[in-house]
């Protein structure tokens, strides 16, 4: 009897192994299932659908149909036509978007680097400065832009000061040139804080020994900043530079909040947002997005690789 049981046990064991998953495998599947499904749907699915959409045309009854034959690239041809003929301010949209690259990478970032160095070197009230610099990152953008436009506008204290100096503050957000300047100044004013926080954190990782040897060798602050601090925080600088490049595509609310009446200041992001908001004819904004992704992605990834080659990777 015992033998039989033993025999039946020995024959059953391999079957059970094959039939049931290991407990840890079930655990892994359960823990990852939602995130993987969400990613497949909302990243892979959405981007794949975006590609499909850009090769479709919108019908009046609200449906989409495939573009075929000579019309296959119609949505993309339309982008070139719009840029060439400046339909819907496509040229100014390009210029406004690219301007954010210059503002973020060549104005905000250098100023932030400079400020960060002094905060890192424990200038008087450096802790207080850090806290205040962080504030714009936690306040809703609509509040920041409203406060900025009211303060600079004709009713605000800065506006009144400008009026006294002979500058019409009431018109600052009404013309293309002045609106653009006001938006760029806002982006620098509100954007420095976040960069400073990241850069000071990067600088705080620099080993004390290196700074002490600089001090003993009598290295002036300027050269310490250029030759020691920047190379040792280069990974953070690169990250912020890439963020700045991505702002060409990501900035979309600032121009609309600050200068709603001047649509020539709107960016690629603003145009895609408004073109999509109605929920109709989504093929055109999808094609516009895909077009700029194809151009932007290799440039940004290439720049990242290039910047990483400037200074060797240092582990400390």
């Amino acid at each position: 009897m015992t033998r039989i049981v033993e025999q039946s046990n020995t024959t059953r064991r391999p079957r059970r192994k094959r039939r049931f998953l290991k407990a840890s495998t079930i655990f892994v599947i359960v823990m990852l299932a939602y995130s993987v499904l969400h990613f497949l749907l909302m990243w892979v699915g959405v981007n794949f659908n975006s590609i499909l959409l850009s090769f479709k045309s919108y019908n009046r009854n609200g449906t989409y149909s495939w573009l075929t034959g000579a019309r296959f690239f119609e949505n993309f041809e339309l982008i070139f036509t719009n840029i060439g003929k400046n339909v819907d301010n496509y040229q100014s949209m390009l210029f406004s978007s690219l301007a954010f690259f210059v503002v973020s990478c060549f104005v905000t970032l250098p100023i932030s680097l400079f400020f960060s160095y002094f905060i890192f070197k424990k200038i008087l009230a450096s802790g207080f400065f850090k806290v205040i610099f962080f504030l714009p990152s936690i306040i809703p953008l609509i509040i920041l832009t409203t406060i900025y436009s009211i303060t600079v506008g004709s009713n605000g204290p800065v506006g009144q000061l400008l009026n006294a100096m002979g500058i019409e503050s009431a018109n600052l957000f009404l013309t293309h040139t002045s609106s653009s300047w006001m938006i760029w100044i806002f982006c620098v004013w509100a954007g420095i804080g976040y960069d400073v926080i990241l850069l000071t954190a990067g600088m705080s990782r620099i080993p004390r020994d290196i700074l002490e040897s600089c001090k003993m060798d009598g290295v002036p602050s300027f050269w310490e900043f250029i030759r020691i601090v920047i190379p040792l925080t280069w990974s953070t600088v690169t990250t912020l530079f890439i963020f700045g490049m991505m702002s060409v595509f990501t900035v979309f609310l600032q121009p609309w909040y600050l200068a709603p009446k001047v649509n020539t200041t709107w960016t690629i992001g603003t145009n895609i947002y408004f073109a999509s908001k109605g929920g109709r004819a989504l093929n055109a904004p999808a094609a516009l997005g895909l077009f700029y992704s194809i151009i932007g992605a290799p440039i940004i990834v290439g720049t990242r690789a290039l910047l990483n080659k400037f200074f060797g990777e240092v582990s400390y």
Partner: peptide, 29 residues
Amino acid sequence: FFGRNVIFAVVIFSLIVPIVGSLPSQMQM
């Protein structure tokens, strides 16, 4: 587990590569 490195690589890729204007497609979805 099988595919662990693939998951990590895909997540990093999705964070690094900028995708512009997937909003229309997301809305449709």
